[in-house]
Design a protein around this nucleic acid. Structure first.
Lengths: 248, 248
DNA sequence: TCCTCAATAGTTGTCCTACAACTTCAGGAC
DNA sequence: GTCCTGAAGTTGTAGGACAACTATTGAGGA
């Protein structure tokens, strides 16, 4: 059984205490438990709140500082960085797009247009380090927020090692869960951003007339550095706001 | 006089030991002292190398991990994340563009088109929290890499509190040095990315025919949260590669 | 009254030691 | 060859101590 500390932090969940505290503090900050610019409790106080050592709190705080969420001042304390709500859609935490939409309070949806297993194209085989003609899972979807199309997504997965159950999960929308089920969770991703104007992209009534998109070309990697998925997401310009926040 | 520890780390430079170690390790990683995916020395070994405590090394390592440069594995060690050279142009460290160009080994240049003090426009006064009609310094420049135009930049600075010497420094290219001279160094910035297609932007022979740009709209803030500068940089699509790397 | 400055309490930064939890690898049993 | 066990090495967490810095308070002087 799990040894529960305070505030839902547990000792044998497979995640380090520091990371758990970090996630918890992060969510408290994003929920506006403290105002922007306000001082959060001191390290000793937090250590008491969470029932962990001060060094554990420090690792969490330093990480949040590096992410730009707080500002630590020697001899004074840690203060919430003030960027209003924009943090939530920050590029540094480009997780699942649907999750970001949900966190912003909208209703996220997906419309799958095609989902098939076919031979990899040349560029896909390069990104995924596969022999050309290897079978891959290719999915084309439109992502909606409150029913309005905000992006078109063309994703490709290396199917080697994927079970049919996992493929089904991925196809029906939950990419994360599908990969997790076969222990193929990506731990890192690399993305390039481009501006593109094209009539070839998108479909249906959500397709913008000017054909202007912000293209995000991504490759997702496993812990051992092997690529597991690649894809392009085309954000309809103006429908989705990208924000970077940074410390100098 | 400065108490020198090992590897150029000093005890009274006004910068914390952890941050100094972090900067030093970061530069060692970017200089490829270790191969991608290779294991860097252990915490005890690094502590001995730098002449500081293990906890100091840990804060530096955790920060580098959050930035995505290394991958720390419990019970094993810290490994250099493998993204080739792309890290150097990462969006997370969107410092001066010219500096990025230099780090990539190209020759950076600037062509100033206009530089004047005039009344703030409506959008500028909103970004900088000024009364409209307040005087601001506005500069329009083209940024070049090896002589080729890669971006057009339209920047605006709040002149209140700036000396004429500082304004001159900013106008002649070194924005950073100019602001530093009057102790108005920005510590944080917020940026939005957009795709834009426009014939109004850019000038001269470097202006792309298709008018396609990646627009970066930025506002720079001082430590106390006050905005000091704002501006738009329009990157000519295809001339400059933006890369995001992230951990999940 | 207002300003200056020193004392003070509170907070983060660094150091030390110790042990727990995890990974890796070598060597032995089968 | 394969599997298992144990040892060694590494990171994670704990606790205590002091240094360095900040913010506040209050006394003293103009």
């Amino acid at each position: 059984m799990s040894i529960l500390l305070k505030r839902g932090i547990s000792r044998d969940s497979g995640v380090s205490l520091g990371d758990q505290v970090k996630a918890n503090l992060r969510s408290r900050i994003l929920k506006h438990e403290w105002d922007s610019g306000a001082k959060i409790p001191g390290e000793f106080e937090l250590a008491k709140q969470y029932g962990v050592a001060r060094v554990t709190i420090r690792t969490a705080l330093r990480s949040l500082e590096t992410q730009g969420l707080i500002d630590i001042r020697h001899g004074s304390g840690a203060y919430v960085a003030d960027f209003g709500d924009s943090i939530r859609a920050g590029l540094q935490e480009l997780k699942s797009i649907t999750q970001t939409i949900k966190e912003l309070g909208f209703k996220a949806g997906m419309l799958t247009r095609t989902s098939q297993i076919r031979a990899a194209t040349k560029s896909e085989s390069i990104d995924l380090l596969l022999e050309s003609d290897t079978k891959v899972l290719h999915i084309e979807r439109a992502i909606t927020s409150d029913g309005e199309v905000v992006a078109f997504s063309y994703d490709t997965f290396a199917v080697e090692g994927l079970t049919t159950a996992a493929i089904k999960k991925i196809s029906t929308g939950s990419v994360f869960a599908g990969l997790d089920a076969v222990d193929k969770q990506p731990v890192r991703a690399r993305a390039e951003i481009h501006a593109i104007s094209s009539k070839e992209i998108g479909w249906g009534s959500g397709k913008p007339r000017n054909g202007l998109y912000l293209q995000l070309h991504q490759v997702h990697y496993l812990r051992d550095g092997k690529p597991i998925a690649t894809g392009d997401t085309f954000f309809v310009e103006g429908k989705f706001q990208f924000i970077i926040y940074r410390t100098i």
